[in-house]
């Protein structure tokens, strides 16, 4: 017997934070009955049901391993709680390709008060799609944004994960540590999309951190993105730059047209789910990628990803006949 997805969706809409564990349990399930309930849950927190976009700020935090993401998150979490904001963190760890199992160790590095009901942390594996975000993580982030003030999706790596995260997050922060040149190279070569906020950790390293920050800022200028903030933070005591980072993330959200960004993300997400499910053949049936993208822009903007996915599927069956 599956749980009642619609009821869970209502609880989220009413900002009942204690529903979060059950919401993720349901969204992660691939059982047929659970999938049906998941769709009901998501329908309850869709823009149509909410009468607009979900109020929470979805923030993607990504960067190479060892850049200090978890420590940074601990400090940010602390800051947000000081400001009275509720926070959900979805920490994504890569799975073992051999066994399919995963070791989710990030949670241990994020410090929080276990009695604090305003914080929810969930570790998930990246699932079968290596490097990408699992379906449950994307839909989970969107669902939790109905109830939590801030929803963080944390992923490891630069490249695939970073593009994936741009499809779910309102604001993407890429975290790098000084002395690692990868990000600079990726930015210059265009492998990496330009993030909304760049964070250089370990600013206690002094000169190295300063010059890393300078190099990144110079690279952004040469790419014509001089306004992209580059922040230096130190999560170690005495922590520094955390208040500024929290402010920069909030500023970014204030500057963008959140409705347009999420709408684009929903359409891109639906198309990607469709491509995963039906492959090249399915794509051809809906007229190819760019044709499908155009077609999606003509659909109701209030539709959520599962609904858009269904539209694509219908279009495919129509055109197959």
């Amino acid at each position: 017997m599956s749980v009642d997805g619609a009821a869970l969706g209502v609880r989220l809409r009413e900002r009942d934070l204690s529903s979060a564990p059950a919401v993720l349990n349901l969204l992660e399930s691939t059982a047929a009955a659970d999938r049906e309930q998941s769709a009901r849950l998501l329908a309850e927190v869709s823009p149509a049901a909410l009468g607009g976009e979900a109020p929470g700020h979805v923030i993607g935090v990504t960067g190479p391993p060892g850049a200090g993401k978890s420590t940074l998150l601990s400090a940010l979490l602390h800051r947000w709680r000081e400001l009275g904001q509720t926070v959900a963190v979805l920490a994504v760890d890569p799975s073992s390709r051999r066994s399919g199992g995963s070791l989710l160790g990030d949670r241990a590095r994020i410090e929080f008060d276990p009695a604090d009901r305003g914080v929810f942390i969930r570790s998930t594996s990246s699932g079968e799609r290596h490097g990408g975000l699992a379906w449950a993580t994307r839909s989970g982030a969107q669902a939790l944004a109905a109830a939590f003030d801030a929803v963080v999706v944390e992923t490891v790596g630069v490249g695939q994960a970073e593009t994936d995260i741009a499809d779910v997050a309102d604001t993407v922060a890429v975290v790098v540590q000084p002395g690692s040149g990868d990000v600079l190279q990726f930015l210059k070569s265009g492998i990496m999309e330009i993030p909304d906020v760049l964070v250089v950790t370990k600013s206690d390293l002094g000169q190295i951190a300063l010059s890393a920050r300078r190099d990144l800022a110079a690279a952004l200028r040469s790419l014509g993105r001089r306004h992209t903030p580059v922040l230096a933070v130190s999560s170690l005591a005495p922590a520094s730059g955390i208040h500024e980072l929290a402010a920069a993330l909030a500023d970014h959200r204030g500057e963008i047209d959140i409705g347009a960004r999420r709408l684009a993300a929903r359409r891109a997400g639906a198309l990607r789910d469709f491509a995963v499910e039906y492959g090249e053949h399915g794509m051809r049936l809906v007229g190819g990628r760019s044709e499908a993208e155009k077609w999606l822009t003509r659909q109701d903007p209030k539709l959520n990803i599962p609904a858009l996915f269904d539209c694509l599927r219908e279009r495919m069956s129509e055109r197959a006949q």
Binding site: S102, R107, A108
Partner: peptide, 18 residues
């Protein structure tokens, strides 16, 4: 546990019951 295919939340040391 990971090698058997489970998802493992490894919490490490020094944990309170809460």
């Amino acid at each position: 546990a990971r090698d058997t295919g489970m998802d493992v939340v490894y919490e490490g040391i020094r944990l309170t019951p809460a």
